[in-house]
Structure formats: structure tokens, C-alpha cells
Design a protein around this nucleic acid. Structure first.
Lengths: 242, 242
DNA sequence: GCCACAGTTCGGCCCGGCCCGAACAGTCCC
DNA sequence: GGGACTGTTCGGGCCGGGCCGAACTGTGGC
């Protein structure tokens, strides 16, 4: 019994992982899934503009590579990112891509981009000007520090416990960092990610202080939210004046 | 004058960036350059086992893509990573690759791997059991926290200033985070990176408390270093007992 | 000036990956 | 059961990219 070759892999692991990202179609899938929700295979295929058969093969690769988790329901195949770990990697790579040039895109594309730039979810936390604005406000109030790293202060821990009823989510984990910086690809600024960023986004949606626009990643503050966040953090999140 | 097409790029930026990593030869280059030093093109070619002509083309791509910086001296072409930013991305991708399987490699390969596992530089800071051990000791002494994020404490800032004469390096920058977690691919544990990690590595080498083994990334503590670090952090960095 | 050496450019080979359409399997609804 | 729909598998075409060797440029040493 001579095993002809280890059936699994060949080559540098780094290269095999990167190859999963190094295709326009798969990259489009991963960016779409950054909204943190589960998409069907057909939705992904339409989004990327490829045939379902092509999408099926790409999704197989991403699942086999551990980047996506899947769930089959009836005749649908739901796909989502494998976890926060994966989302972070996608976001890191996308952010490194850089200012990405002013994007000589179409007009309607730039309208959609503008909504995303105002506010959006980034997997499980908030990004865009909304996310950066909240982060800045928390720093200004001494709830978050970054001069010695990116961490909540003791005041910050209290703030989450008292105002968002989030003591449990932040206490438990040695697993996931409470505060982690995530680099924003529109603002080129850091904003709050990690368990703290996730619970913040979760509570704001739950209390309807922010809401999703349409079916995408874009979000905006509700009138209630504008009022509440002005009280809690002294920040104006009402969006563009114009 | 109809510009036929923007001469630069096509496709998703994420995919174009990832494609630079998605080749065994280029990945080998990047991993080799993680030692933070400048290599000549010939050295890189030998390391990866390809012809100089092939290496030349790969390096062109990496430089054009902004991942490498180059410097020409006489008939040599020196290459290094473009910056800490780039090193972090390489490290993130390599770490995600995962436990990477126990590596059914050759015996001498595993001997070299063992030296790297004990201690090594990771671009500009320390990794391996040495890096993780120092990080753990700093946490134990209350110099570093991770329950609220990954950040130096006020005591930690003082410790760096008093014992490593590093006040300047840590004060200046809003640019680079003082403390940042870097995930270790041998230990699967976080260790100290960022400006703090860099200055720690720099001072320890400067004082000859640690020294490089051969010409690679591996490092070990000197007798002086073992003594000094036991005093300063109460940690034993003498390496394997065997 | 001559030789050794580092790196580059070019032509050509070849393999792998991406894509589609067609045929098929499984699910849901009427 | 019939029809609409979602997703999968397979075959085949095509293109791009990685690799090498050979020829060439430029630097440094004798």
C-alpha cells in the first residue's frame, strides 16, 4: 500500500489560503457576506454576475477552505462567513487594498457607496462615519483608550454594563478580545470591533436606535437613536445635513 | 484621445492584493522577509528554489503591488517588506493558515523548526515561546492587560520608560499602536507587537540579552539576558532544559 | 581589458483555473 | 402528478500565469 501522496494539500499554506481570496468572484462573495448575514447560493451568484454552476464550485472551495459555513434548508443552500475570525481577515485584506483610488465608478454606484460611507455594519459591528463617530465619542469621554493600545477603560466597562446591560457579554470571554481596532476602508480610521463592538451594534439595532436601509449593509440612526446617543455620548449621528 | 482603458487595474482590489500572496514562490519570499531584514534577489531565489529570472519577475510584482520596498546597491537588488503594516498582514494570513498540520516534514526541517519555536523575530518584535513567555510575564506583573483589549497599563508605560529607556518611542506616536496582539503560529497564543514589541526586541538585542542564531530569524537568550530578565520580569527564558 | 557575478528581458512551453451550457437531482407549490 | 425553481455535476473551451534557458546589461575585482 504505497500512498501515492498525502491526499490533502501541497505548497505553502499561506499561498493556498490566499488563493481563495485571489479571484474576483470569490472576493465578491466574501465582501457581500461581510454584512454578517446568510445568503443563498443564487443570491451570491447574481450579486457577482456568474452562472449558478460557477458559483456552486466557488462556494465549495470556500467551504472546504474553512472560510464559509453552510446550512442547507430545503432546496436552499445558505452561506455565511465561518466566524468573526474570518470576517476580520476579510476586512484586514480589504482595508489594506487601500484608499483604492477615488473609484471612477458610475453615478448610481457612488450613491450606493455614499450610503455605505455614512454607516454600515462590518460583520457584527458598526463602521462608516457612524462607527467612527461613536468610537471617537467614546474616546472623548474616556471610555476607550488608544494611546496605550486599543482597550476599554474601567469607566468604559461600567458604561457598557449600565447603559447597554452588557456586563455578561464583556465579562465572560478570554476567547474574544473585548475591544479591537478595525480599520475602516472609507474613513481610513479605526473603529471599535471585538466583543464590545458586537454588543454595541446588537443593542442599538435591538432598541431600534439604528436601522438597516433596504437589504444591504447600510444602516442609519433613527430619530430615537439620534436623541439617545446625544444623551449617552454627546454625539450627533443624524447623518449629512444636506 | 480615447483612453482605451485605465492602464492600471481591473477587478476587485481584494482579489488583486490576495493574488500577490497566492503563489508558492511569492509566499516563500514574504515569509523569508518576515525576519525584517533586506535580502538580495539571489538569496530569495535560492531560498525558494527557483531560477533568478523567475525570482526577478515575482519581485517586480510584489514591488509594484506595494508589498516590498527595494534598494539597489551596485549589482545587488535588496528587498525588504514595505513596512510594519505589510508585515502584520503577512503574519495575519500565515497565522490564519492555522495549526498547519503537524507538518510531516523531514527530520532536519523539524530541527530548524524547533529552534524557531523556541524564539524568533517576527518582523520587528519577538515571537515563539520566548515572545509568548515575556508577554505572559508582563501580564502577570500587571504591565499589560488583555481583559479589556490589548493595552499597556500605566505601570507598563513606566516599566518601559524606567527599564528600557523607551519613553520616547512610546510617547510620540498616534501613528502606530503601542501594544498590539500578534498571533503566534507555533504557540497559537498572542504576544506583544506594535511599537512596544518593537522597542522591546530592539533593546534586548542592543544589550545583547538575546542574540540571533546563525543568519535566520531564530534567537535565543544569552546568559546575561537570562539573568536580567529573571530580575526584571521574574521569568525564565533559558530555553529547553534538555 | 578580461573574467566572474548579479540581475533582467524575452520567447516558448505547459499546466491549472475560471467560465459556461446542458443535463440531472431534489424541493416546494398548485 | 406537473411545473417552476434551486442547486449540482460534467464536459469542453479558453486564457492567464508560472517556469525555464538563453542571451544580454551592468557592476566589481584582478
Amino acid at each position: 500500500m504505497s500512498t501515492p501522496a498525502p491526499p490533502d494539500t501541497a505548497g505553502v499554506p499561506l499561498a493556498r489560503l490566499a488563493a481563495l481570496f485571489a479571484d474576483n468572484t470569490r472576493a465578491a462573495f466574501l465582501l457581500a457576506l461581510l454584512d454578517g448575514r446568510a445568503w443563498t447560493l443564487g443570491e451570491l451568484a447574481r450579486q457577482a454576475g456568474v452562472a449558478p454552476s460557477t458559483a456552486s464550485e466557488h462556494v465549495d472551495q470556500l467551504v472546504a477552505g474553512g472560510l464559509l459555513a453552510q446550512e442547507r434548508q430545503g432546496r436552499h443552500r445558505y452561506l455565511r462567513l465561518a466566524g468573526a475570525h474570518t470576517a476580520q481577515l476579510v476586512e484586514d485584506l480589504a482595508a489594506y487594498g487601500g484608499p483604492a483610488a477615488p473609484r471612477a465608478g458610475t453615478l448610481r454606484a457612488s450613491a450606493a457607496t455614499a450610503a455605505l460611507a455614512r454607516g454600515r455594519t462590518c460583520y457584527d459591528h458598526l463602521a462608516g462615519r457612524l462607527g467612527v463617530g461613536l468610537t471617537d465619542a467614546m474616546i472623548g469621554r474616556g471610555l476607550l483608550r488608544l494611546d496605550t493600545g486599543f482597550a476599554l477603560t474601567d469607566d468604559g466597562m461600567r458604561w457598557f454594563a449600565e447603559n447597554l446591560d452588557a456586563a455578561d457579554e464583556l465579562r465572560g470571554g478570554a476567547r474574544r478580545p473585548v475591544a479591537r481596532p478595525c480599520l475602516d476602508w472609507t474613513e481610513r480610521r479605526h473603529h471599535l470591533a471585538g466583543a464590545g463592538g458586537a454588543v454595541l451594534c446588537d443593542r442599538l439595532l435591538e432598541r431600534r436606535w439604528i436601522e438597516r436601509i433596504g437589504t444591504g449593509r447600510a444602516v442609519r440612526a433613527t430619530p430615537d437613536g439620534v436623541r439617545a446617543l446625544r444623551e449617552l455620548l454627546g454625539v450627533d449621528v443624524s447623518g449629512e445635513p444636506g
